[in-house]
């Protein structure tokens, strides 16, 4: 399936900007209209997570637990045991961080089909500061047996991820960023859970991203015309499409992973351990370098901590020159 880009997607003056959480909320409302067993369970952040698109239409299928994330998880588990398809929704640090052991025991262990949908993943959360910037959520979910972990790259992909999650089995985590980011895919862009997307073919290096960082990598590959860069979007972090990544690594011999997540336990570390087994090539993880950052606009944080296009390009060039 060929990837379909939005028109003029590389032109920052023309590309549409919208947060992933908005796409996720719209996808949720579509699902609610299609399936009577979809339930939303929220913890006082429903509108902020854009779940109001669902809750305003389906108040009888909305459960508001208040500021109580552990309870949110347990309620979702109970609903799933009864065959409902609950979406547990709040900010990533609270949903995944605060409630991790209930997630492990009541959702992962019995393999309950609960979809955990989070906003506020990564430092893109911005001015709220590190308490609200979740940079450990991939590590915490990917280590749980049976979990599907989705990290959509933009608004449209978040919408498709939410809709696709309904048809999966077992627990699912979908991470969305708070900040508006470029919408470079379209409603017609293919989305298959478990398959990575090769956005651009190349032979000199494989660069891999998830979330909005994939857009940065496309910009960088376009700028560095002297290099032939293969760009891969990994919207499904688990189960990881390692075959395609291994094939690309064999071809290019170098793998660079960029993500808004701690480099410890993020996609980069997951790929590095898989490649070490199959095709041991140099791997560079570029992300949040095992620190807590600070308050600031997303733009300022990206600049200071090297996750903007310039900082990411510099990290890639440093890696390639080694």
């Amino acid at each position: 399936m060929n990837f379909i880009f939005a028109d003029n997607y590389l032109d920052e003056t023309k590309v549409k900007m919208s947060p992933m959480r908005e796409g996720a909320g719209l996808g949720l409302a579509e699902l609610g209209a299609l399936h009577a067993d979809v339930i939303v369970v929220g913890a006082d952040t429903l509108e902020s997570c854009r779940a109001h698109h669902f809750t305003e239409k389906f108040p009888d299928r909305t459960i508001q637990v208040g500021v109580a994330e552990q309870n949110l998880i347990g309620v979702c588990a109970g609903l799933a045991y009864e065959g409902k398809v609950p979406f547990g929704i709040t900010y990533a640090p609270f949903l995944i961080g605060r409630a991790w052991e209930p997630i492990r025991t009541t959702i992962a262990y019995p393999s309950n089909h609960v979809i955990l949908l989070a906003s506020h993943a990564g430092i893109a959360t911005g001015t709220d500061g590190p308490t609200h910037q979740m940079t450990e959520d991939i590590a915490l979910t990917a280590c749980l047996p049976g979990f599907t972990v989705l990290a959509p790259c933009d608004h449209e992909q978040a919408r498709l991820a939410v809709k696709a999650a309904y048809d999966l089995k077992g627990p699912v985590y979908i991470r969305c960023a708070r900040e508006a980011t470029p919408v470079f895919t379209t409603p017609e862009t293919p989305f298959v859970v478990g398959k990575v997307q090769i956005l651009r073919e190349g032979t000199d290096a494989t660069v891999i991203g998830h979330g909005y960082m994939t857009y940065r990598l496309l910009q960088i590959a376009e700028e560095l015309k002297e290099l032939s860069i293969e760009v891969i979007n990994v919207h499904t972090i688990k189960p990881l499409d390692i075959e395609t990544i291994v094939a690309s690594a064999k071809k290019t011999g170098k793998v660079f992973v960029a993500e808004d997540h701690n480099i410890v336990g993020g996609l980069g570390s997951i790929i590095a351990s898989a490649l070490a087994e199959h095709v041991p090539v140099p791997v560079k993880s570029h992300g949040v370098y095992d620190i807590f950052t600070e308050s600031g606009s997303a733009k300022d944080l990206w600049g200071k901590y090297g996750l903007d296009t310039e900082g990411t390009k510099k990290a890639l060039l440093d890696f390639l020159q080694k």
Binding site: N71, L79, Y81, G83
Partner: peptide, 14 residues
């Protein structure tokens, strides 16, 4: 401490 939350989920479903 988790069972009552799950029981609430069962009760909502019913």
């Amino acid at each position: 401490g988790e069972g009552l939350s799950e029981a609430c989920g069962f009760a909502f479903a019913a």
